[in-house]
Amino acid sequence: MTIRLSTPEVAGLGPLVGKLADWQADTGPVQLHPGDLGWFWRFGAERTANSVRVWDRDGEVLAIGMLDEPDLLRLAIAPDALADDELAQQIEADLVEPARGVLIEGEVYVESPADARVKVLLFKDGWNTAEPWTPLRRDLAEPVEDAEVAVDVVGPEHAAVRTAVQRASFDGSSFTDERWHAMAAGTPYASARCLVGRNERGDAVAAVTVWSAGPGKPGLLEPMGVHRDFRGNGYGRAITLAAAAALRDLGASSALVCTPSSNVGAVATYRAAGFEVLPETRDQKRPF
């Protein structure tokens, strides 16, 4: 049996989204989520397909990677393949050699599940740890408290409001109306929602996109932002509560989010919205 590395066609993205959803579990490691692929879809289906790498053994998909950037690969691995040594060795070989078409030459980063065998092999190869990230999770077994702001579910006719809040929340954001429509046309968005929070005057003050992996699975917040003109008023906590409630309505078992540990304000916001801090994770950095 041979493990094969491939890049999917656009038509193959749907089944891969389904695989990623199947692999999500509250008891398993935090790893690449269908929503991560869904958020990337704002660049279009073809570019999304070109960013994906798939490892399979005789047609059985064992691992899915997404090049979030040319120098950053984010990996998800089937739960029963996390310790698969043959798979780990093949991924390791594909990551070490730029000619294999996974990562570019030079300094690059890999995010893999905490329990993955490939992580151990990369450390043995001399890969280093990068800056820490903090994952957070909120259980959704019980109803979520009221967000205490007006919340709109964004449809195509209000995409401009959603994208404007995004650009006002993140310096350098390139989220346009066209990219919102591309994202919304993607397979993962069928189980997603964009929310905009408004203050008492009706100003759009915060926004979030939530992604379901299906009933009984963890959902994802990606991204969440507060308009720079309205920070310091609790709107981050409010829209995060609205996001958790939306995921619960979609059948999610929990809500996940991940942020750089250095962003202490974001960590505090999610904690204020009832999210529990999980053990820090670190990408691995290639030393050459």
Rank of each mutant, 00 (worst) to 15 (best):
T129K: 14
S253G: 14
V144M: 10
K119F: 04
H33Q: 07
V151G: 09
A252V: 09
T240L: 02
P135A: 09
D249T: 15
A273K: 01
A246G: 08
D171S: 10
A242D: 00
S262I: 08
P188N: 09
L87F: 12
R137K: 14
P29H: 11
R286I: 06
A147L: 05
P260H: 09
Q284C: 13
P218W: 09
L278M: 14
V208T: 13
W23G: 10
L256K: 07
I77Q: 07
L140P: 08
M66G: 07
C194W: 11
L32E: 03
D229E: 14
A99I: 04
G65R: 08
P15L: 12
G101I: 05
G186R: 10
V10I: 14
T48N: 05
Y189V: 03
E86T: 12
E142H: 12
Q24I: 07
P29M: 06
V226P: 00
G202T: 03
V17M: 02
F123T: 09
T163S: 15
T281L: 11
F40M: 11
G155V: 05
T176C: 07
N233D: 03
E46F: 08
V10A: 15
Y270N: 01
S254P: 02
P215F: 05
E148K: 12
R42I: 01
E97R: 14
R42G: 04
D26R: 14
A272V: 05
L20N: 04
N50Y: 04
G197T: 06
S262R: 11
P287H: 08
V226L: 00
A206F: 00
P98L: 12
K19G: 08
R179P: 03
L5E: 13
P260T: 01
A207F: 00
D56L: 07
D22S: 10
R138V: 03
L221S: 08
Q89M: 12
W23M: 09
T209I: 13
R282G: 00
G65W: 05
G225S: 03
P79F: 06
L75C: 06
L73S: 08
G274S: 04
Y235G: 00
S212H: 02
D56M: 08
V120C: 04
E69P: 00
D152E: 15
G214H: 08
T187H: 11
G44F: 06
R248S: 02
W127C: 10
L247Y: 05
Y109T: 01
G59I: 04
R47G: 04
E111A: 11
D125W: 06
L67H: 07
V196C: 04
K124E: 15
G44K: 09
A116I: 07
L75R: 08
L121D: 02
P113C: 14
L67W: 03
V208A: 05
G101Q: 11
A164T: 09
A266R: 12
